[in-house]
Each structure stands twice: as C-alpha cells, then as structure tokens.
Amino acid sequence: MNTAPPNRLASAFSKPHPALVCFVTAGDGDTAANLDALVEGGADVIELGMPFTDPMADGPAIQAANIRALKAGTTTADVLEHARAFRARHPDVPLVLMGYANPMVRRGAEWFAGEAATAGVDGVICVDIPPEEDAALGPALRNSGIAPIRLATPTTDDFRLPTVIEGSEGFLYYVSVAGITGKQSAAQDSIDAAVKRLKAATDLPVAVGFGVRTPEQAGLIARVADGVVVGSALVELVGEHGENAPEALRDLTASLAKAVHSAERTAA
C-alpha cells in the first residue's frame, strides 16, 4: 500500500491557481536534475515518462526522448528508482508515471502497481489501455492506492464520455488535438468548449495537454482548465541541451508557471 500522504494530486489541484503539469522522459539526460528543475521552476505536478520502444501516440520529440533513454540503458527498475528518489527529495509534489501498457504489465500489473506505490507514485497514465481494457491495469492500481488517470479526446463523444470518466481518478487528462504529442495545437475556442463539456460531466480536475508549447498558450488554457500539461517543448530542451538541460528547463517552466498561475479564471 501507498504509505505516503495519499492526496498529493488533490492538493495540487486545490491550490488557488491552476496547476502546471510538466513532463520529461525518465533516463533522458540527468533525470534527477531535470525533475528538480521542473519543481524549482514552479511545476505543480510531475509526469515522468516511462520509455518504450514503440511509443505510437507520440510525435518526433518524445519518440526521440524514448530512444535516447533506451539507448542510455534505462530499465523499469531505473524508472522506479527515479520515482523513489524524487519522492525522497520532494515529499509533497505529486508524481505521475506516463507510458505504454507493455512495460507496465510485463511482470504483472500487481507487481508494477505495488512497486510504483512503494516508490511514492501518485498516479499512472497508460496511453494504450482504454476503459474497455481497464482490467489489465486499473484494479491493480486502485488496490495500491494509485490513481488511474484517463485520457479524454476530441473524439470522445457524449455517449462515450461517462465510460471514460467512470473509474478515472486524480484528474482527467484532455488531449486537445486528435493526433500525436507535440505536433499541432488546437484552436483555443475548441479547448474552451471541450473543457466546459468535460467539467459539466465530472467533478475531477481537468488538465489539458498535447500541443501546448508556449506560456501564451498555457495562460489561455489556464483561464478555463484546472491544469495545463506541457511535454514535448520540455523534452526538446533535454534533446538540445543533454546533461545541461536543467537550466533551460527551469527557465521555460518558470515562464509557463507564471502564465498558468496568474491566469484570470473565467467560467468554462
């Protein structure tokens, strides 16, 4: 069972301002320093990517990060160790693992959920386990006190939305474009309308990601959403600066945090 305070995610989303959720891939560059830089820059929630050989929902930036991490020899044990060490350094910052099903279920879903809980992980986003296949991972996560965080997309219609929300915990991740990570950005109007629709259907916080790259975009989304997720733009900095990425990550995160935290909330 998870022995750490169980409501880090809830706390992050009940701050007086929207939450900035920042993603980097485990094993890409100096992971500990990268994660610390995100926290120092003002990230409210950390998403740690689990590298996979076949990241089919990801665009070029995160694909490249996966390849770099695997080339560096990153194992599942390493990812869990990064999580455990992060938890020791940052007892209060929520940490979410994001990745694909196969590395998560390889040794059994119970094993993975147990190890992740022991490491202090608060939530798991699995890209390729839709609600229909929840049995493959969801029960194991819930039994270990880890939130299974689901994705809703522009193609998730009203008929399907309740299926996605049911069994979703922590927050609902709205994928703002029908496509892969980091490629194109959604029109702000469509994001506003989608968040409004989702918030009418659930009490879970709604965080918006995919294609969010700049403080300006993040600030606009933060007017309506409970959280803003930035991934590819950060991962590109790791690709560009390698071991020296922390400074660049800290700077970008700080400007994103400023925009997100100071956004004027409007009713979605």
Partner: peptide, 12 residues
C-alpha cells in the same frame, strides 16, 4: 486480443 488503443482511436 482486445482493444489496446489510445482513446482518440477508440470511437473509430
């Protein structure tokens, strides 16, 4: 078997 796909593809 099953349907282990991203949510975007599920409705399709």
């Amino acid at each position: 078997g099953g349907r282990y796909v991203a949510e975007t593809l599920m409705p399709n």
